[in-house]
């Protein structure tokens, strides 16, 4: 666990005094705002964290017994202080160069997308970016799956309510599934000696984080096909759960009616079994209500 003096300095240096570090059992001070609270958690399982987040809508939930606690705290502070930069550069780009212990990011590869046909091309490009890494379930299966889920949601779900007649977009040919005007999304990828960082930004900002958290929670509780939503125009909890199982950090940043970012951190030198049960951190921010 990191040095508490250093962590307190980190918070006080980066942010105004209204940032609060709370344990799950603590009461939030009356003067505090949930969006400025970082929950210092010690949950035994990923499900406990998700269940807690469902009923306690704070912004950041980080596991203080995890090796990456100070890095997760750094991410929380970064997200709170640099929010205005994200819609241009994304979260991973803004983490580049920060003083992390293990999440050090030097280079970020970014790819633009506008249509369904871009998914396969970007997956291939990312495969090339990561070709120096060991070939295992994380690099050959988990990463493509997460990118696919990110982009599928960005293309099929994000434009709903904004692009005309997007409700029946799945019936169209792939060549007709294109963002209008000059809108485009961005996929970001970075890697260091231990971790892969993935991000997807859509240009709509319609994502509702609570729906994702609820979907993941339902897969734990129900675990059957009922989790797949009847409404085929929106994704079900299955996709979100697949991502959640394969990462140790999951983050969502929505600027309403502008853009939405999802990102995750994946250790590629751990087995998928260990990753699925690894202490996880969750970051959720919404602005522009």
């Amino acid at each position: 666990m990191g040095d508490m003096t250093g962590i307190n300095k980190l918070i006080s240096k980066a942010l105004p005094g209204d940032i609060i570090l709370l344990a799950p059992e603590d009461d939030m001070p009356e003067s505090a705002k949930p969006e400025k609270c970082i929950i210092k958690a010690d949950f035994d399982t990923p499900f406990e964290l998700i269940e807690y987040a469902m009923s306690h809508p704070f912004s950041h939930y980080i596991q203080y017994k995890a090796d990456t606690y100070t890095d997760e705290l750094q991410i929380s502070c970064n997200m709170l202080s640099k929010r205005s930069n994200f819609k241009l550069d994304g979260i991973i780009e803004n983490l580049k160069g920060e003083q992390f212990e293990r999440y050090k990011i030097d280079d970020v590869h970014r790819f633009q997308f506008r249509c369904r046909d871009d998914v396969g091309k970007i997956e291939q490009s990312i495969e090339q970016c990561l070709e120096a890494l060991p070939r295992n379930q994380v690099t050959t299966s988990a990463v493509p799956l997460i990118i696919d889920e990110f982009m599928t949601n960005a293309i099929y779900s994000a434009p709903l309510g904004v692009e005309p007649e997007w409700d029946n977009v799945r019936q169209r040919d792939n060549s007709e599934i294109v963002y209008s005007g000059d809108r485009c999304g961005i996929v970001g990828v970075a890697a260091n000696d231990e971790y892969i960082f993935l991000e997807c930004i859509d240009p709509y900002g319609t994502l509702v984080p609570q729906n994702i958290i609820s979907g993941i929670c339902q897969t734990y509780k129900r675990g059957d096909k009922q989790v797949l939503r009847d409404d085929e125009t929106r994704g079900g909890g299955i996709g979100s759960r697949m991502i959640w199982d394969k990462c140790v950090t999951f983050g969502i940043n929505v600027i309403r009616h502008n853009c939405a970012m999802v990102f995750c951190v994946i250790p590629y030198r751990l087995s998928l079994r260990k990753i699925a049960n690894h202490p996880k951190s969750l970051h959720i921010m919404v602005s522009g209500e």
Partner: peptide, 13 residues
């Protein structure tokens, strides 16, 4: 099969 995503699961079912 090189992968299956959540939308594909729906089609498969």
């Amino acid at each position: 099969v090189i992968g299956i995503n959540s939308g594909g699961i729906r089609e498969w079912i």
